[in-house]
């Protein structure tokens, strides 16, 4: 892989690594913001994938690529990620106001 010219596959691998990092971050962080960072990583991986798939130059056959759809999708995804992050942060703030902490492990009132 490292010897071939850069193609879609390479982008995909980077995306995959980002994805895994994001997942690990999501699941292991105790900090709310940390979890959100992981989420952002995951979303970034997806966006990267989209952009990768819409590069005609990286495809052997141009017609089979996502084309402009990919780019547009990526833009939308960025916006949505941002919006989601904003809301999530607001919720985290609300949580902090009530619990005086952003440690997610302390949020165990609701269980069973």
């Amino acid at each position: 892989m490292f010897t071939q010219p850069i193609g879609v596959a390479h982008y995909l691998v980077v995306g995959a690594i980002l994805f895994v990092c994001g997942i690990v971050c999501m699941t292991t962080k105790r900090n709310t913001i940390g979890i959100l960072m992981g989420v952002e990583l995951v979303l970034s991986a997806a966006i990267l994938n989209f952009v990768a798939f819409s590069q005609p130059a990286f495809r052997v056959d141009q017609e089979a690529s996502l084309g402009i759809d990919g780019h547009v999708f990526a833009l939308f995804a960025i916006v949505l990620a941002a919006a989601e992050a904003a809301v999530a942060l607001a919720i985290a703030l609300n949580y902090y106001n009530n619990h005086s902490t952003i440690d997610v492990d302390r949020a165990q009132d609701l269980q069973g």
């Binding site: 979890i35 995951v42 997806a46 990919g70 997610v104 949020a107 009132d109």
Partner: peptide
């Protein structure tokens, strides 16, 4: 508990949305 619920919902939902987007990207590609 409302704030806790919202937090759990948001974090979980964001995570799931991220996974879904990644899957969409794979499939679309």
């Amino acid at each position: 508990i409302a704030s806790e619920a919202a937090l759990k919902f948001a974090l979980y939902g964001a995570g799931a949305a991220g996974v879904m987007l990644y899957g969409m990207s794979l499939m679309a590609g």
